[in-house]
Structure formats: C-alpha cells, structure tokens
Design a protein around this nucleic acid. Structure first.
Length: 530
DNA sequence: CGAACAGGCGCC
DNA sequence: AAAGGGCGCCTGTTCG
C-alpha cells in the first residue's frame, strides 16, 4: 500500500489518501488531527509514503515520526523530465500538475522556499494532496513503462531524501573545542576584533618583504600578478600549481598564505559560530542536486570539509564513528558497466594491480591513465598511457569513448539506471563546445552510475539498520563515503551492515557481474584517525 | 549600494 | 609534467 500525505499548515489537520501501488486512490480522503497517527499507520501497514518533497518529511521528523519507505514526487519528476530529454525543466509539484493538464509549467519556486504561498500571490488556491495523488499516479504509469531500472532509481532517489533529512535532523557530531584548537594551532589566536589572524598577517608581511617591501593584498589575484610581473615573471593566473613552477622568494609564503587563508575564510571561527550548534553540524543536503545525481549541499560547505579540521568530527563519549568509503568506485563502475571485468578483478587496490600488469609497477601512472580515460584528459603524458589502456581494455575504453562521441554529436547519454544528461545547448556544434560536451558525457556515464550505486548502498544500509533496530545512525554521506555514529558496542555490527549493503548494491545494479565493490572501513573515535 | 561575475581552491 | 569531470563558497572586482 501507498499513502499520500499533505501535512498542511503547521499545527493544522493532516490529510492523507490511501493508494494502490499503481497510484489509484483507495476509498476516501482522511483527515488526521496531527502527525502522530502517521507513526501508527507506519507500524501497522509499513506503506510507501508519497510526499510532495523533502520538506514534507522534515515536518514528520520534527514531529518525531520517521518512516521506512517513500516516493518523493518532485525528485521522481526530475528524473522523468530528465529521461524525456528535458533536464533542467521545472519539476516541482506545480509544474508537474501543469504538465499533467497540458499546460506549460511555470518556473519552479526558488529552492528552500517551502513556506505557504506569499501574501500577495494571486494564483488560484492549490490542493496539494489532490495534486500529489494525481501526479504520483501519472509517475507510476511512466515508471511502469520505463522499466525496472528506472523504478529502482526512483526508489533509491526517494530513499536518499529520507536519509538526507534524517542526517540533517541528527547532525554530524562536531567538537567546537577541537576545531578551535586546530585553528589556533594553524592560524594563531583568534583575533578579537576581526582582521587577519597572527600567522596569516605574518605570511602577508613575508610576501610583501619578498616583493621589496611594496604593500600588496595577497587575496587580490590582480595585485599578485602585477607584483610578479614587476619581478620579471609573467603569469597567466595565480593558481598554486602555476606559482610552484617559478623561482621567486614570494612563492613559498604566498602558497602558505593561500592555504591558511582558505581555511580561515571557509572553515574558520566564523564558520564554526554559524554552522555548529549543540555539538552538531547540520548541513542541508540537496539530493540529486548535481547533474550526475550526486548530492549537493546548501550551507556550510558540507561536502568540502577540509582534512585539516576533520579531527573535530568526533564520536560522543562511549560512541564510535564507522567511516566507510568505496575503494576506487568509478573505475570499478566502468568495469561493470562495460563488461571489461579484467579492469577490476578482486578486491585489492585496483591501481596497484593495474600498474603491476601494464605500467611497470608505477601506481601513479596507472591511476593517471584510468582517471584520464574517465575525465577525457589527453595532455600531461596521458596520451601514451591511454594507448596502453585502449589496447588492453578495449571494451571499457570503447564505453567511455562512445559516450564522448554521443556527447559531441549532441545526443543524450544515460547512467546504468537511466539518469539522463542534459540536452545539448545551441552552439554545441562549435568544435570547442562539442569537445567539452564530449568530456562531460564521457564522465557522466561513469560518475552518474557511481552515484546511483552509492545511493542504492545508502538505501540498503538504512533499511538494514532499521530492520536490525540498530542504534547506529547515518550522519554523513559524501559521494562514495559514509559515516555512521554508533554506540561502541554496536559498531562491529554496523560495519558489517555497510559491507552487506555494498554487496547488495552491486548485485542490484549489475546482477551477477564479477566486479567487486570493496569498502574500506574503519571504526574510530575521530574522523581524522586512519 | 547590492548584484553578478571571476578567480581560486576545498572536496569527490 | 600538466591542469581534466562534478560541485559550493569565499574574496575581490566590476557593473548597473
């Protein structure tokens, strides 16, 4: 059974409608006084809940209600719109409803705008429950026609929404005192009145001195370029890899400055004050926010937590973190996708194994070769290495090269489960634009499939933990890495659940493929511990 | 003055 | 040795 739910205005009545699996309404609409009976329906029937969007589940969680399964109408609409070749077109509930009635949809409301319609909005009053029911039924028809892979993707995307909301609600354990200590060690004591911390100020002085004492702001690329030009170094940019190539006394302090300045501005004391509360960091995750289906995040740069402050992520006393990441996920996905299984035999380090067989034991070469194949790099000596790969793994290389050609020719490419890339834009016939789109579609097929493998793992892991009544909680997810927060006594069992979920994810995507997706697992107190 | 863009760099 | 796929977010700079 499925149940569509409209939580309505805060503290108001909650409307629900029971549905058959094909989306057809069963019986009549029901009105609940609040969200508490939802928990009861969950216990009794364990339905798949049909929500308009993540915000609906956020309301349930705020009321202390969680559920096992969901169908997120707006996320699924995004997948279906994309599959029809219209990635980026509006996919909110209002847009989906308009499409259902043959009208041209208006643009989606801005992200994060979940409130009631603005006071002065003049459109007709909408009935969210009716719209959810109607759009969901249409989506079930579309998914039935699209096939089992697309249905798996829709379920996994929706499960991702549940995980994302639960992670935001629970928060990532974050110790402000540890973070503060790290910052003080690296930057010097926090300046009371703002301005540059002592170590940054000292480095800025060194840069100035290296340019003969002439004042400059190291944060201004234009000023830095001018200073180097006066010293006889004509640079294109001030990127660190370009700076490293020249011989000038300002380079070393400038590089050190850039590194610390970034830490200070992106994850310094003001970040700590803004984003960490009560020992938890609560970023908002945007499921499917990246074209490839990877998640994005809103606020706090959650998916770019620098290594330098990871020690601040620490389990509560008596608890542990289970840190698990999929080893070399993307090349393994390519091996499974293309059927070129020799590329990813066994569970050992894939680059080392490849290097031993093809690149004279040079792991760096093997890694560069594979990444170049997936990203479309040709320069930097990658060309020679690619020739080796092409000879040795023709099916794998052919797979990404077909995707690149499709992109260059303006066609669409799809992930294994059917996530579809955006259509070519006008002007893509221009050679440079065509090559750029080729690099994009080449990477898309791999990155998007890797993202859905990770999503299925996440969904499986969540259901396993629920089924086992494990006290372990998912607290972080970053592309191919998962963090659980768990009482120490339950850590081993949680780690086993991660391994099992990875196994299941591989099977659900690729059936009997011999390609393995090993997880590197560690049970630690601090995220920085190896 | 704020908005929009560019440069740069953190993560995968 | 050279600098490529996807993001978010900071500062500096320019534009309206």
């Amino acid at each position: 059974m499925r149940i569509a739910v409209d939580p309505g205005p805060r503290d108001g009545p909650v409307r629900i409608r029971r549905l058959a699996d094909d989306g057809a309404p069963l019986g009549f609409e029901e009105t609940l006084t609040d969200l508490a009976p939802v928990a009861e329906l969950e216990r009794e029937h364990g339905p798949r809940w049909v929500f308009a969007r993540a915000h609906t589940y956020r309301r349930l969680l705020a009321a202390g209600v969680d559920v096992a399964r969901a169908h997120d109408v707006e996320l699924v609409e995004g997948l279906l719109v994309g599959a029809a070749g219209h990635y980026g077109q509006p996919h909110g509930l209002a847009a989906a409803t308009a499409r259902l009635h043959g009208r041209t949809p208006d643009p989606d409301p801005p992200a994060g705008d979940d409130g009631p319609p603005a006071l002065f909005e003049t459109g007709p009053a909408t009935d969210e429950l009716t719209e959810v029911v109607a759009v969901h039924a249409a989506q079930q028809r579309a998914l039935a026609a699209a096939g089992p892979r697309m249905r798996l993707l829709a379920a996994a995307e929706s499960a991702g929404m549940l995980v994302a909301e639960e992670m935001t609600c629970y928060g990532l354990p974050w110790h402000p005192d540890i973070h503060d200590r790290l910052l003080t060690e690296l930057l010097g004591p926090r300046p009371v009145l703002g301005g540059r911390p002592p170590n940054l100020a000292a480095l800025a002085e060194k840069v100035t001195a290296a340019f003969g004492g002439r004042q400059l702001n190291p944060d201004s690329p234009a000023e830095v370029l001018r200073a180097f030009a006066r010293a006889g170094h004509e640079l294109e940019t001030t990127r660190s890899w370009e700076l490293r190539r020249i011989d000038h006394p300002a380079v070393e302090p400038l590089l050190a400055y850039k590194e610390l300045a970034r830490l200070h501005s992106a994850h310094g004391w003001s970040w700590l004050r803004t984003w960490v509360d009560g020992g938890r960091f609560r970023p908002e995750y945007v499921v499917g926010g990246v074209v490839s289906g990877r998640w994005a995040s809103r606020g706090g740069g959650a998916l770019q937590i620098p290594r330098a402050v990871r020690a601040a992520v620490r389990a509560d006393p008596g608890w542990r973190l289970v840190v698990a990441d999929a080893a070399q996920l993307e090349p393994r996905v390519l091996a499974a996708l293309s059927g070129d299984h020799a590329l990813a035999l066994g569970e050992d380090d894939l680059y080392t194994a490849l290097a031993a067989r093809e690149f004279g034991g040079d792991r760096a070469k093997a890694k560069l070769a594979l990444l170049s194949a997936m990203y479309g790099q040709t320069s930097g000596g990658a060309g020679v290495l690619l020739a080796t790969l092409r000879r040795r793994f023709p099916a794998a290389m052919g797979y990404v090269e077909d995707a690149a050609r499709a992109g260059e020719e303006g066609r669409l490419v799809r992930s294994h489960l059917g996530r579809t890339c955006p259509p070519a834009r006008p002007g893509h016939e221009q050679p440079a634009a065509a090559r750029a789109r080729g690099r994009f579609t080449r990477n898309f097929v791999v990155q998007a499939t890797a993202a859905e493998w990770a999503l299925v793992l996440l969904a499986e892991l969540r259901l396993q933990l629920r089924a086992a009544r494990s006290p372990a909680r998912l607290v972080f997810f970053q592309h191919d890495e998962v963090l659980l927060h768990t009482p120490a006594a339950a850590a081993e069992e949680a780690a086993a659940a991660v391994r099992a979920a990875a196994e299941t994810a591989g099977r659900r995507l690729f059936g009997a493929s011999p390609v393995r997706f090993p997880m590197q697992l560690r049970i630690v107190e601090g995220y920085d511990e190896r």
